[in-house]
């Protein structure tokens, strides 16, 4: 069966187009009307189809993309407020609340934990690799990638 032969291919392409629109424009002020317009659906029909295909509403998906991108920015060392506004939130409190609801921790504790972990890895990377793999790779013999005090 070719890609043009399966049923409702035209519907799928429009739903996927809407998802990719969210992926590309998450940082902008987009709302459901923008997204359903992009997919050429009525709002109600669009929400139902999107949820069937992806298991979450377009709004829930947009929020999860924004929080995922915020995590990337925090890992890269951006301040919490920068991460908040760069992914499209208007309010720091709504960002922090949603971040905690989705990830289970606040943005600042997430960032602190990540940086702490990063420092521990830099100090002793082999401690974070299963011993069997490190041995097979020869990393336990060739430790010259580790930082030395010299």
């Amino acid at each position: 069966m070719s890609s043009n032969e399966y049923p409702k291919v035209y519907l799928y392409r429009r739903i996927v187009k809407a998802k990719l629109f969210i992926d590309a424009h998450y940082a902008e002020k987009i709302d459901l009307d923008n997204i359903s317009d992009e997919a050429w659906f009525s709002k109600f029909h669009f929400i139902r189809l999107f949820k069937t295909a992806y298991g979450s509403t377009p709004h829930q998906y947009l929020q999860s993309v924004r929080i995922g991108k915020a995590k990337e920015l925090l890992r890269a060392g951006k301040p919490v407020s920068d991460a908040c506004f760069l992914v499209g939130f208007d309010s720091l409190s709504s960002f922090s609340g949603l971040f905690k609801k989705i990830t289970g921790e606040t943005p600042s504790s997430f960032a602190a934990r990540y940086q702490q972990n990063k420092q521990a890895i830099a100090k002793n990377p082999l401690a974070f690799v299963p011993g069997c793999y490190a041995y097979q790779h020869g990393w336990t013999e060739n430790r010259n990638f580790e930082e030395t005090d010299n």
Partner: peptide, 23 residues
């Protein structure tokens, strides 16, 4: 969740399929 939606998305991203969704 949905093979057809995932197939369309991955194709757009340049993933090479050796079999389109088939029942």
């Amino acid at each position: 969740r949905d093979v057809f939606a995932t197939y369309e998305e991955l194709k757009l991203k340049g993933v090479e399929f050796i079999k389109a969704p088939t029942k």
